[in-house]
């Protein structure tokens, strides 16, 4: 039986004005119909760092993440403010296509299109009006290198993306996202469908990518959060309970619910 924890007792860090932030949410609420899935999330994400969102299944971390680039449009009702470059991108007048070009997303299950490896990457570039062949080729190579996939696929760019292994597919999805040169990369449990070796490769890729991008990653795997992230937010039953630097989170959790979760008492 799950212990009852008070949702009043939270420990959420804020950042002073000197820290440059990639994104910030204020009072973010998400409703699936009558189901209040996310309560009052106030989180700020520093630039060029990896922030991990951890928590048990159903804690609302994926729901929260999907709100950040408006992927919940048409699925759930999201209220509150999402600040990005001092614009509230949760306003209905905001161009969602533009947002998703700047805030990319990689999903839990590797989901390359049933097209060739090259086509997977140029698809979105073309959709954005990039037509120059040389430039497209350049972007393909650059993004595949960025996702640490280039050496493995450079001779078979015309092969179907579905012929790649799961780990390669997921890195292709990352390449596909960074080909758009976004600011922020959202990853929704990117390694949960991968074997340990592929997971290590993806993690190495992320650590490399944080030099250029701000990364927010949802993960089930606490070791993964500890390995890759600088900041760590713990979600519980639709509430953000604790948000601290990752070192603090794992060595010195501030509140009982986090302590119990880190210790493995539930989740």
């Amino acid at each position: 039986m799950l212990k009852q924890y008070s949702f009043e007792e939270t420990a959420v860090q804020t950042f002073d004005e000197k820290t440059s932030l990639a994104m910030k949410t204020e009072n973010l609420q998400v409703f699936y119909g009558a189901n209040h899935a996310m309560h009052d999330a106030d989180l700020a994400f520093p630039k060029n760092q990896i922030t991990a969102l951890i928590g048990a299944s159903g804690s609302g971390k994926s729901t929260y993440l999907r709100s950040l680039n408006r992927m919940n449009d048409g699925i759930a009702t999201v209220t509150g403010k999402i600040w990005y470059h001092n614009v509230d991108i949760n306003e209905p007048t905001v161009n969602i296509y533009e947002i998703r070009r700047h805030i990319g997303m990689v999903f839990q299950r590797p989901n390359p299109f049933a097209k060739s490896i090259r086509e997977n990457i140029v698809y979105a570039l073309r959709a954005n009006g990039l037509k120059n062949k040389a430039e497209l080729e350049e972007r393909v190579e650059k993004s595949l290198r960025g996702a640490a996939l280039w050496d493995e696929v450079k001779d078979s760019l015309d092969k179907s993306a579905l012929s790649l292994s799961g780990g390669q597919q997921q890195r292709l999805c990352i390449a596909r996202s960074i080909a758009m040169e976004p600011d922020v990369l959202l990853l929704d449990e990117p390694c949960s469908a991968l074997d340990p070796i592929s997971t290590v490769k993806v993690e190495e890729t992320l650590l490399e990518l944080q030099k250029k991008y701000s990364i927010i990653i949802v993960t089930h795997n606490m070791q993964q959060a500890a390995r890759v992230s600088s900041q760590c937010a713990f979600f519980h039953l639709g509430h953000v309970m604790e948000y601290t630097p990752t070192g603090t989170m794992f060595s010195n959790p501030q509140i009982p619910v986090t302590q119990d979760y880190i210790a493995g008492s539930f989740g």
Binding site: N69, M71, Y97, E98, I99, R100, R101, G104, M105, F107, R109, N111, P112, F113, A114, Y123, A124, A127, N128, C173, R176, S177, M180
Partner: peptide, 17 residues
């Protein structure tokens, strides 16, 4: 598969695209 659609939208492609 639904995830094709999601992937495409997440890349900033429009509904028509």
């Amino acid at each position: 598969p639904r995830h094709f659609k999601e992937a495409s939208l997440a890349l900033g492609a429009t509904r028509w695209q």
